[in-house]
């Protein structure tokens, strides 16, 4: 059995709406029939806009939320029946910097959670030293977390998730609100963990991050997984490039670009961007038109589709919706 197996996991929340005199119940599907598995040394990127169900899914996997239906197994342990065993095999980083005690120092926070993870006291100190060093927090280990910067708090939260050296790691938006340098550090550590054979689920809003880190990407929308494949395979699904980028001179001579198939045009300095449904079909007509108008074309690019293009193609929404 793979270290992380999810079978038809579903979560329905019951909401009560209305005023004191007329309350009615409404059922909301936060996650619906989600199934996947993740192997050793593999990263699954969960992509989706706000409210898509990513965090609910992560919280079900780490036993904070009980599923309405379905089952998941962490290292073979059921999340509904063997919660304690599941927690022993999980390292979890939930979104944000509020996961820490601000009135404790960085080291005190890690010592506290080390005790709660039942770490052997003889190993605790060296493990905490190692993690503080790794995340660049060693020189501020005795500072109260309330005096940390946002980036430092998120790095400490990341260190906390690694404390028990669990085989399965869940990272919910690990680089949100981080500066580029800290983001790079976290991303490189996630790669290292993958190379050490850890099983990782990563939720993120950042396309490049998902593209760069994930071995597989699951696109989640309205609680359902609408696509699950390697990033390269997903991009092949959106095989039509939708943008034509043309560098050249003389664009100012164009009054209008009246060619069938053009959806939108952006023009800045010497770069013209033309948006269309199918760039390969439009390109010959466009070039003929431009040359006819006296434009000197020096470079033409048909950018490859990004994961965001894939997402829009599959869901009709952008990732930041």
């Amino acid at each position: 059995m793979k270290p992380l197996v999810v079978k038809e996991l579903t979560k329905i929340f019951e909401l009560r709406e209305g005023n004191i005199f007329s309350k009615r119940k409404r059922e909301i599907y936060a996650v619906r029939d989600v199934s996947f598995d993740v192997d050793n040394g593999e990263i699954l990127g969960l992509l989706g806009p706000n409210g898509a169900g990513k965090t609910t899914l992560i919280k079900m996997l780490c036993t904070l939320i009980e599923p309405t239906k379905g089952e998941a197994y962490i290292k073979g342990y059921s999340i509904t029946k063997e919660a304690q065993k599941v927690k022993q095999n999980l390292g979890v980083m939930l979104t944000g910097e509020r996961a820490l005690y601000w009135k404790l120092t960085g080291r005190e926070n890690l010592e506290y959670f080390a005790a709660l993870y039942h770490l052997d006291p003889s190993w605790t100190k060296s493990r905490i030293d190692e993690l503080l060093e790794l995340l660049g927090l060693k020189d501020r280990e005795n500072t109260l977390v309330e005096n940390y910067s946002t980036g430092m708090r998120i790095r400490l939260n990341f260190a906390k998730a690694l404390l028990n050296d669990a085989p399965v790691l869940l990272f919910d938006e690990p680089t949100m609100s981080l500066d580029p340098q800290s983001s790079r550090l976290i991303r490189s550590l996630i790669k290292e963990l993958r190379d050490k054979g850890k099983t990782i689920i990563l939720t993120t809003h950042y396309m490049e991050e998902a593209d760069q880190l994930s071995d597989k990407v699951a696109i989640i929308n309205y609680g359902r997984i609408v696509a699950l494949a390697k990033p390269s395979e997903l991009k092949v699904k959106v095989n039509k490039s939708k943008v034509i980028e043309i560098e050249g001179r003389g664009f100012e001579r164009l009054e209008e670009l009246n060619i069938k198939g053009i959806m939108k045009v952006d023009y800045k300095d010497s770069l013209l961007k033309v948006y269309t449904e199918d760039s390969r079909e439009l390109l010959p007509k466009l070039l003929e038109f431009l040359i006819g108008k006296g434009v000197q074309v020096s470079n033409i690019k048909l950018p490859e589709p990004s994961l965001e293009d894939v997402f829009i193609e599959l869901t009709g929404r952008t990732l930041r919706d």
């Binding site: 780490c62 022993q88 939930l94 996961a99 005690y101 709660l116």
Partner: peptide, 13 residues
């Protein structure tokens, strides 16, 4: 309120 309660439910205690 501070957001740490969840963290205490993530651990096998």
């Amino acid at each position: 309120i501070k957001g740490t309660l969840e963290q205490n439910f993530l651990v096998p205690i």
